[in-house]
Design a protein around this nucleic acid. Structure first.
Length: 348
DNA sequence: TTCTGCACCGACTTTTTT
DNA sequence: AAAAAAGTCGGTGCAGAA
């Protein structure tokens, strides 16, 4: 069974990993799940692994797992005072942040609510983001503020037409339907075939991010985006090059590598689904099937969040994923572990 | 039954860093 | 230039409300 590429962090610059300093052939040998935990969230002594501390989906490890544990660098992104408040626009210049020691934050980072959490919120309630001060009453729910942050003043009125009680946009969204029947974004005039696509797209114009990374505080619109991001903290690299043992966090990175370095072009049709890879976020093992992954989890990680989540779902009456469980689906939730970009529902 | 929000996932693209 | 990371969208399925 292939082994997920797990990356050991060498103690490099604060707050930033330097994977390149780790020889590729060594990356898979040692898994340091998280080495950038802020001291503020570190428990005393060695009793708590990073995974145990994180509210993310990294679940507790059984004592018998003698995984190397990374010490927390004294000056990680979160272990030090953050840079001053972000710009008014909600975005922060990466260089400014870098000067402040927050090298994880990229230039396109959108601060969640205008204020990055000074410290990683211990189990962050993902859904409890405070509304944008200027529109508190109009945005009870982040997903229901379609044009709240447009540059034009009138959208505020439009937003008020989106009601929480009904969960329906009474006139705003339908009113945005263009002459072709497509749904048009007020902000960028992009068109979408489905209203739900437009609704989701509108979040892009919204600086309020519902899903916060507990490691660095960065916010994302989508849980999947957050989970993908978290992998940069955990060092899990499931996509391994078979030719040079290099590994990547995203499949596209691997495919790009294969093409550019090895001149190997994967034969995939446009948007053709690749083989799904099931990854154990506990130890990095990869499996070709969900059953194999479950078997592995049962045998080695019986306390894994994924298994607990499945058990909880069974207890709750069967049902598959979806909103009910997802509502509390923070990156630390069982579901979170269950649904990494390489694991999780086998529905697809 | 329909609509909607939400979670989830894969894929493609873009930007930034090394 | 390559890699890393993030932004975005198409699509699917479930749950809850109307």
């Amino acid at each position: 069974m292939p082994r997920t590429f797990l990356v050991k962090k060498s103690n490099v610059s604060p707050g930033k990993r330097n994977w390149s300093e780790v020889p590729d052939h060594e990356r898979g040998d040692v898994y340091v799940p998280v080495s950038i935990f802020p001291s503020s969230v570190l428990m005393t002594g060695a009793e708590a692994s990073p995974a145990e501390m994180t509210p993310l989906c990294l679940t507790t490890r059984s004592p018998r797992e003698a995984q190397p544990r990374a010490e927390l660098p004294s000056s990680t992104v979160l272990g030090r005072p953050r840079s001053p408040a972000p710009s008014a626009g909600g975005r922060t210049d990466v260089r400014r942040r870098a000067q402040a020691g927050s090298t994880y934050v990229r230039s396109k980072m959108k601060i969640t609510t205008g204020d990055s959490p000074p410290l990683p919120p211990p189990p962050p309630p993902p859904l409890s983001l405070p509304p944008i001060p200027s529109l508190p009453s109009l945005m009870p729910h982040a997903t229901e503020m379609p044009v709240a942050l447009t540059s034009t003043p009138e959208p505020v009125e439009a937003v008020s037409m989106v009601t929480r009680s009904t969960g329906q946009s009474q006139s705003l969204l339908t009113g945005m339907k263009g002459p072709t029947g497509a749904y048009v974004c007020h902000v960028c005039q992009k068109t979408f075939s489905y209203q739900r696509m437009l609704n989701r797209h509108l979040k892009c114009h919204n600086d309020t991010k519902r899903h916060l990374c507990s490691f660095c505080g960065k916010g994302f619109n989508d849980t999947f985006d957050l989970k993908r991001h978290v992998r940069t903290h955990t060092g899990v690299r499931p996509y391994k090059c078979t030719l040079c043992d290099k590994a990547f966090t995203q499949r596209c990175s691997l495919e790009s590598h294969m093409k550019k370095i090895h001149s190997v072009t994967q034969k995939y049709a446009y948007k053709e689904r690749r083989n799904k890879l099931y990854v154990c976020e506990e130890c990095g093992l990869t499996a070709a099937t969900q059953d194999a992954l479950l078997l592995h989890l049962h045998s080695l990680h019986p306390d894994s969040a994924l298994l607990k989540g499945k058990a909880a779902r069974r207890a709750a009456g069967g049902g598959g994923g979806g909103g009910a469980e997802g509502e509390g689906s923070s990156p630390g939730s069982p579901q979170g572990a269950d649904s990494d970009d390489t694991t999780g529902s086998a529905g697809q």
